[in-house]
Each structure stands twice: as structure tokens, then as C-alpha cells.
Nucleic acid binder design. Structure first.
Length: 344
RNA sequence: CCGCUCUUAGCUCAGCCUGGUAGAGCAGCCGACUGUAGAUCGGCUUGUCCCCCGUUCGAAUCGGGGAGAGCGGACCA
């Protein structure tokens, strides 16, 4: 596979590459590596899927992929996960991520999974962390992590250490590229700034777009209807998509279109199948789309009504997440032990 | 170690002084209007008032004890 094709695979459906020149150079190197970290906190949802789906692209581009299950981070961020549940939630995340990678058409065995506690407690890491702590101002760390860690009136030190640890993780895992949602930008920009000052390589960064919430605006963990959960059955998915904010002819904050663009079409493309919308004759009959761009164009023109779009989208999403839901149904103890209060 | 403040609906808070078993905004749910959703209009739901004990006919409210959270002071050989 040539460099141009690899670059296309790596960068498609991303929000930003820092920097493209560095990526061009990296892809000339023998064994490029990329990593993404997930703090095992709340239940995984469709947003996780959009970043994970791309791991299939990286593998196809022949890049080493490491997934960090950032267990310590899950606790450091305002104790989102109680210390005693870190193991159970890590196991749940790892299983979920494997299922998503598989659903995206790749082999989960090709991915290396690492736990934060596997290396973040080792002396070299800890010593390096202290040196970063000594050298970074509170306001700098605060600013870097403001989009990631929970903001509150009584912020904990853990949030600041979190930020520096995530920066250091890139070097500790020896990753050429730090990959994550665009919300992670602040932290990895800090990494690019401070790692070279401490003798480490300056990492490239690759950011995935974030999906809008289904009720418009940002996706919210607390708003049930603002996102599709990976455990939602087809009926629930249908109801959520049906209730989504979706103004005719508008792209802004339109979660339905974003789901199609970043999730449904890429996966259908992988399977070589088109997107079929069943529509009453009265409104023009069924339509078939091979590419998202054509659908978006029709939607903008008003040729495609939101209600018709929603029905087909709900079915497609439900079908895509079905294997993941089934995995959790097969192993109910994964969720039960990760969230004992919710599943008892 | 000492002192002060806070704890009421999913969230932010009012009510407490001057006891009569609780309210607002937001959120949520349901209808109307749109071939979706939103916006708009109409309607509706929700509470161990942090816990225990006491005073009282009656305690979210007063008194005592406790828990959790926050802030400040002191100490700095």
C-alpha cells in the first residue's frame, strides 16, 4: 500500500491532523504507532464507537494500534469511577472496545490493550511525572484539561495530575500518534509542548469529530435521550432517533446526519452495501444512497424529509450496534459488576 | 488543633428569623401545531426537607448530638 493511500485511510473522517507534514514524514518510517486512551467511567455509548471504528482504518493502513484502558484516570477525574470498581469497569471497557472493533470489520486481536496501572505506577514513569508536576503551572494544566476532566466548584488535584499523566502516557507508550476525540486537543497540545522539553519526541495528534447530542447541542451523559447507548435495543434506538433534533435542510448540530456521516456510511462502505431509505410513494418512493455526500445534498435541497431519514437511520444504527449489545447480553456479569448500582 | 458556613424535586436554589407536614426556575413527561425533532402554546408529574434524639397539640423551621461537604485561622522547631 502506498503512502498516499495509507494517509487517506488514517485521516478520513477526522477533524484535525497535527500536523499533516509530520504525518507525511511518519508514514515513510517503518513501524508507525498510534494510541488512544479511554478512562473506564460511565457506560459506553455511540460516541465511543465513532472513535473506535477508525481503529480499523489504522490497522488497514498497517499502523500499530494500542488502546490504553486508563483505569487510574477514571478515578483521578473527580472519582468518576470508585477505586474498587476500576478492575470491573476496565474489563467491561475492554470487552466493549473489542466488540466495537469487530463490528467495524477489524480483528480485535490485532490491537494491543494496556491498562494504566500496568505502567503508570512504575518508578521511571512516576519519577518523570513528578518532574512534569514540578515544571507545569496549575493554570496551564487546568486549561489543557478543561474540555476533558469534570469541572466543578471544588476541583481536585487529581484533575491536574490526570492531565500531565495523559501527556506522559504518549511517551511512556512510545506512540508516534496520539489519537482521540477533538475534546482531547488541549491535553495533547500540552504534550507537544512539554514532552520535547523533557527529552521525549513531540507526538503527532489525530482528532476525531465529536457527535452532537440527539437533542441538539453537545452529547450529554446525563441526558438519556441525547445519545444512543450500546445496550439499546432496536426499539429504543428507533425512539431516540425519532425524537432527535433534526431541522429540515440544516446540518448544524444535526445528530442524525452526523451518525450517518461518521458511523453508518463508513461501516456500510466496509460491507459494500448501500443505504436504503424506504419511503411512501406519496413522497417519492424508496431511495438508495451509495455515498453520504449524495444524501446530504438531497437533505439540504429539501428532497429528503427528516421523518423518512430517521426511520432508516434508526434501523441502520440498531443493526450496527446489535453485535455489541448481544455481547453484553451474553456476558451480563460485565455490566453487572462494573455498575452494581444500576444492574443488581 | 480552633472557628465559621452549607446540606430541601433530576439540577440551581427560595422558605427557616416570626413552628401549622414545601415552592420557583430549569429539566422531564403528555397533548396542540408542523409529514420528524426543535421553537411556540396548553397541561402534568416528582420530594426519607442529610440522620438521630428532644421541646411542642404540631418541627424543613426551635434545642442537643452526629454525618458529609466547603471556607478561614492558628501552628510552622
Amino acid at each position: 500500500m502506498n503512502t498516499a493511500e495509507r494517509k487517506r485511510l488514517v485521516t478520513r473522517h477526522t477533524e484535525e491532523v497535527v500536523t499533516e507534514e509530520e504525518l507525511d514524514d511518519l508514514l515513510e518510517e517503518p513501524d508507525p504507532s498510534i494510541y488512544i486512551g479511554y478512562a473506564p467511567t460511565g457506560e459506553m455509548h455511540i460516541g465511543h464507537f465513532t472513535t473506535i471504528r477508525k481503529l480499523a482504518d489504522f490497522l488497514e493502513a498497517d499502523i500499530d494500534v494500542t488502546v490504553l484502558i486508563a483505569d487510574l484516570h477514571a478515578h483521578l477525574d473527580d472519582e468518576k469511577s470508585p477505586f474498587d470498581l476500576l478492575e470491573a469497569r476496565s474489563a467491561y471497557y475492554e470487552a466493549g472496545i473489542e466488540a466495537m472493533v469487530e463490528a467495524a470489520g477489524a480483528n480485535p486481536d490485532d490491537i494491543e490493550f494496556v491498562r494504566g496501572t500496568d505502567f503508570e505506577l512504575e518508578e521511571p514513569y512516576t519519577l518523570e511525572l513528578y518532574r512534569l508536576l514540578a515544571d507545569t503551572t496549575i493554570s496551564r494544566a487546568q486549561r489543557a484539561g478543561s474540555e476533558v476532566v469534570r469541572q466543578s466548584d471544588n476541583p481536585k488535584l487529581g484533575a491536574l495530575v490526570y492531565t500531565l499523566m495523559q501527556s506522559l502516557d504518549v511517551a511512556a507508550l512510545d506512540a508516534d500518534i496520539a489519537y482521540g476525540g477533538i475534546d482531547q486537543r488541549g491535553i495533547y497540545m500540552l504534550a507537544r509542548e512539554i514532552l520535547p522539553e523533557h527529552g521525549h519526541d513531540k507526538p503527532l495528534c489525530l482528532f476525531a469529530p465529536l457527535l452532537s447530542g440527539l437533542s441538539g447541542g453537545k452529547m450529554s451523559a446525563s441526558e438519556v435521550g441525547s445519545k444512543v447507548n450500546l445496550t439499546d435495543d432496536p426499539e429504543t434506538v428507533g425512539e431516540k432517533i425519532d425524537g432527535a433534533y433534526c431541522p429540515q435542510g440544516e446540518l448544524e448540530e444535526n445528530g442524525v446526519l452526523e451518525y450517518l456521516d461518521h458511523l453508518v456510511f463508513p461501516i456500510l462502505e466496509e460491507e459494500g452495501e448501500p443505504f436504503v431509505i424506504e419511503r411512501p410513494e406519496q413522497y417519492g418512493g424508496n431511495v438508495v444512497y451509495e455515498e453520504y455526500g449524495d444524501l446530504e445534498a438531497d437533505f439540504l435541497e429539501g428532497e429528503l424529509h427528516p421523518q423518512d431519514l430517521k426511520g432508516a437511520t434508526g434501523e441502520a444504527i440498531a443493526e450496527i450496534i446489535a453485535p455489541i449489545r448481544e455481547r453484553f447480553e451474553t456476558e451480563p456479569e460485565l455490566l453487572a459488576s462494573a455498575y452494581p448500582d444500576r444492574y443488581d
